[in-house]
Amino acid sequence: MRFCAHCGVKLANDNPKCPLCDMDTEKIDDEFSLDYPYIKSRFTRGLLIRLISFMAVVFASASFMIDHLVPTGSPWALITIAAIVYVWISAMNLLRHTPNPASIALCQLFCIGGLVFFIDFFTGFYRWSVNFVIPFLIIGAAIATTLMIAIRPMKYRAFTIYQFVIAALGVLSVLLWVFGWSEIEWPVVTAAGVSILCFLAMLVFSYRRTQHELKKRFHV
């Protein structure tokens, strides 16, 4: 133990300085206690987030400047920026969450959907994104989430809510065709059908669990 004459207190730890007044202390016996570990300042998640965000801004502005100085007439800079935004959102999603596969799937569904639509739109709008990619993304996400819940219900039953959202998106995707954005009917109808069937399957095979899960989410 040590003693600080200035404050008149004994010190349990073996620090040469007094934690209260920062003055030198004297040793009175060899006993001391280890109460807290030494914490190294580490590379934290906050720093990583800032680093990734800053890099995204750097790349985006670089491509913008190059496009401005060397005009090509092609929309490559816009597409690059869209890709950077996609990478940034995915990185934030992965960094913020402890692995939650369903939320990652939903985030990817939105981001990839947005990205392909953007690319398609700026390269002549041949409608391949709305015709095929987005409906098939919805089908993929619906099946993946259903499989997760079916295989490990104990761990993933809280994902019912994501499945519910995906089913809603599937239904909404029919609007793409209704409003004439997509030219081919069968992919959107398939997406709506598959996502609703997946949700129905949950309802049919574990009605009480699904109902319970939705009740929790929407309780007032």
Binding site: M1, K10, L11, N13, D35, Y36
Partner: peptide
């Protein structure tokens, strides 16, 4: 401590 109370201090300011 000036009032005569014996005090022992511990802190997480670890070297």
């Amino acid at each position: 401590s000036r009032k005569g109370v014996p005090i022992t201090v511990s802190s997480n300011e670890t070297a």
